[in-house]
Design a protein around this nucleic acid. Structure first.
Lengths: 302, 302
DNA sequence: TAAAAGCCATCAGGAAATCAGATAGATCAT
DNA sequence: ATGATCTATCTGATTTCCTGATGGCTTTTA
């Protein structure tokens, strides 16, 4: 392989413009440069690319085949350049996304589908984890971005942004004494055990590193804490107590027939839980991360 | 785009071997050449491809992305070279094949399927034509190769090779007086009109350009000539006469229920028709044409 | 701990490729 | 027939590229 890219450029310019002189003008070179470039290319390839018997050279069949190959190579070169420019302007070449496994899947997967089309070369890693895993993965660099349900304590090194709010519903087991009621009052609920998400488990979230993020409402004096909405739904369906969970968890096929929704008559405002996006303060701010943030925010809010 | 292919080669060698020195040894260059090549590449791309803080350089994330792009480009370059070598050794870049429309399709299509896999870049043209079209297309350069049923007269400029022999069967209309007979004698057949393929139509094939190729057997004094087996089968099914046609024509779904096969008791040898491949004397002798010739011969003979 | 080995970046000088401009021969259009 | 345009080729100058040497740095070895 003796030839170089400039010779391929000359070949395409000559093929497109129909003469070596025109190609030279287009490329801003001397005609002799194009002429010798193509002559050398022909020597290197062992082919006659142009039929020079007429006034203006005309591509041979072999020449046309080479033009097709050359065009593909230069297209790839342009792609390399484009990718280099994108990377040079800060675009991520890899992105690791950590998401709470209890988040609604469809909007997440739709966003990733669009992502795959728009940045086909991106190496994406997707980590599914429980409530507590997400911030620790982001904090230790395992993940660049994390999406999780709002929780009261987060490492200081992380920055948080609320990106959506999911409405919640109260559920009990289908055979629970409360299941028959059309509406219940808080005072009624408080006589039964409440299951809430909490992280870190059993800790007293009052330390100096506490950030915003409201803690899950404790409406009953008898509380069990778990780190997973799935575990909560599981226990609720066993009749252990009641819980506030996001709508999509209550609607999940595995639980839908086992649990019963409760409407709480005297709740000051509709129950909801925030979805937050966390990143290390310094990182996770490339163009793809920013796009993904707004995309997830839009899709989760529908 | 300032960079060149040598720099990409250096990048890959360095990435693969883990150090610039090793890459230089592998490429048969000085270490400084590799070092400056990669340094220039980094300047051109605006990226840091290697992390040089340690003893041996290690690819950055951006570097890995560029390695993937570069590998693809060099793969394409190898492909261009391979194609150039093939073309230089006489391989066709285009091939136009003219076939008699009455040839059996399945073996033809199977051969073309294999052809498409084996020479993916070949530009193939397939012309379907009647008996007379094939040799004229090959003679005037419209086609490179022709496949047709043996016919007595061919232009002098064409060379012919028999590549298969298809057995024939006699057919009459299902409601023809002969249709009930289990076996017929030639003397019986000769009392009915025979339809034969002939080309050129109505000509007296005795001119100076006559070549080998036996003319279709005229077993009856009353003969109609047509240039297409399909037209013959059509007329036979109308009860116009009887004909010798290749087995697959008699088995063609459109005619199968309309015609009846006859077995001729006193035919000296089983009726058959030769399939021939024609080319201009000078042309049609590239590797692909030769492969196609043997492939068609094998598949048509099954 | 000290020496040795291996690696990289950089520099200088020479080899090689590339380029622009000029020229001559060929082809096309008028 | 003539002028315009094209290609191939030559020449000298510029640029690029390469090798070999050197020094600084890191890792391994003694």
């Amino acid at each position: 392989m003796q030839w170089n890219l400039d010779q391929l450029v000359c070949l395409l310019a000559a093929a497109d413009s129909g003469s070596f002189s025109a190609a030279a003008r287009r490329l801003g070179k001397a005609q002799s440069a194009v002429s010798t470039a193509i002559a050398h290319l022909e020597l290197d390839l062992g082919l006659t690319l142009f039929d020079r018997r007429r006034h203006t050279p005309v591509l041979t069949a072999e020449g046309e085949a080479m033009v097709l190959e050359a065009r593909e190579i230069l297209r790839q070169c342009d792609q390399l350049d484009a990718r280099a420019n994108a990377l040079a302007s800060g675009e991520e070449s890899r992105l690791t996304l950590a998401v709470d496994e209890a988040l609604p899947y469809p909007p997440l997967m739709e966003a990733l589908t669009v992502l795959a089309e728009r940045w086909p070369a991106l190496e994406l890693s997707l980590l599914n984890g429980a409530q507590d895993d997400i911030p620790s993965w982001v904090a230790d660099g395992t993940a660049d971005l994390g999406v999780l349900f709002s929780q009261p304590t987060l490492p200081e090194a992380l920055s948080v942004r609320q990106i959506a709010r999911l409405s919640q519903t109260a559920i009990v087991a289908a055979d629970h004494p409360l299941a028959g009621e059309r509406e219940v009052r808080l005072s009624t609920l408080s006589r039964h055990r409440q299951l809430v998400v909490a992280s870190p488990l059993g800790g007293t979230p009052l330390g100096g590193t506490t950030q915003g993020g409201h803690r899950p409402a404790r409406l009953s004096p008898r509380v069990w804490q778990l780190n997973s909405y799935y575990a909560i739904a599981e226990l609720v369906s066993q009749g252990i107590g009641w819980a506030l969970v996001p709508e999509h968890i209550a609607a999940y096929p595995m639980y839908r027939s086992l649990v019963s929704r409760l409407s709480i008559s005297d709740l000051p405002e509709p129950a909801s839980v925030d979805v937050e996006l966390v990143r290390r303060r310094a990182a996770g701010r490339g163009p793809i991360a920013r796009w993904l943030e707004s995309e997830l925010s839009a899709r989760l809010s529908r």
